[in-house]
Amino acid sequence: MRAKLIAAVAALLPLAAATGADAHHSFQMFALDRLETVNGTVKSFRWAMPHAWITVTVPSKTGGAPEEWGFEGHAPNLMARKGWKFNSLKPGDKVAILMHPMRDGSKAGSIVHVTLPGGPAALERRLSERPMIVLRHD
């Protein structure tokens, strides 16, 4: 899945103006005008440059085998300022991920926020003028 995403990066359009010209890649592969929520179980959490990744096991809607989805975050230093830490997620965590889906329909997305059940509501934050990834608890 990640290899597929990396391959897609080569064919990207210019970055949105607000993000500057030097990002690691464009976010144009994601449908930034669409928002969807995916519920599943964390398989792995990669907290590393250039972007954090969450791999999530998602039950099949058609009753088939569970699907594996990948969700891309920002650089860890940017996410850390929104309350994330290296150990914010661990395998087995139930998560709801609000994300911009891939334009090509593949099982991946750009994270807007991740909701964990049962935590303090204080972590919840609204999206700001400069949308960034937010970790929140219900």
Binding site: A11, L12, L13, P14, A21, D22, A75, N77, R81
Partner: peptide, 28 residues
């Protein structure tokens, strides 16, 4: 080139510095 899908700079792939003034303009 951008219209043809080529937008990324080689400096970015190599992690070369961005230098002044770019180093003062980022999300961090």
């Amino acid at each position: 080139l951008a219209a043809a899908g080529v937008t990324r700079r080689v400096a970015n792939m190599l992690c070369l510095p961005t230098g002044f003034p770019s180093m003062m303009q980022w999300k961090s």
